[in-house]
Amino acid sequence: MAELWIAAAFPAVIWVFLTSVSLLISQNWRWIVLILALQYMGVFVLTGIHWPLEMAVVKLVAGWMATIVLGIATGEATILQPQSWREAEYSWPSSRLFRLLAAGLVSLAVFSVAPKVVAWMPGVSLAQAAGGLILLGMGLLHLGLTAQPLRAAAGLLTALSGFEILYAAVESSALVAGLLAAVNLGLALVGAYLLLAPNLEEAG
């Protein structure tokens, strides 16, 4: 079983690289939600190297639940305010190229730093270091380029996933796994709230 996880690790790194870059350049909110859900499959494989299967599954399920919450909220927000998404992304065509270039820079930085992280953190494999740092870097890049609640939530969840991959190698407590899952869900709920809040009735 352990060999299977290790064999799947490098494809998982490529997977999270592709999903995180796609997340960065996607224009359609449906694609963003779908890609985020797919990204958690890579996170599941990379955390599963150190964690027992049942704990790694928690990461996958919590991630998917977070994605569903964000998807439902964005769908609802788009119905209530159809123009909001387009207005926020008015400079799209030129920004896609810029984002791709920025993602390239982040990837270069990640691949030069990953071996050092392996040396600093005993127990972390190169695949985990690369996967974790890619998600951290792309998540931070995403956060730096947006003020839109869905994108901010996706960026935060991506960055947090990267951290969780690295942290899984050094900490395998059930309480930490539970609390991190709660933080993921909480972030998704807050993201959903921020998407819907302008259209909700005033609380007074």
């Binding site: 609640p149 609390l179 933080v183 909480g186 921020l194 809040a197 302008p198 909700l200 609380a203």
Partner: peptide
């Protein structure tokens, strides 16, 4: 750190009440 993060999440509806732009 995780509990402080949860507290920060609870702060969001306080700071961005319903009916107001984000």
């Amino acid at each position: 750190a995780l509990l402080i993060e949860m507290a920060a999440l609870v702060c969001v509806p306080l700071l961005a009440p319903p009916g107001k732009n984000i």
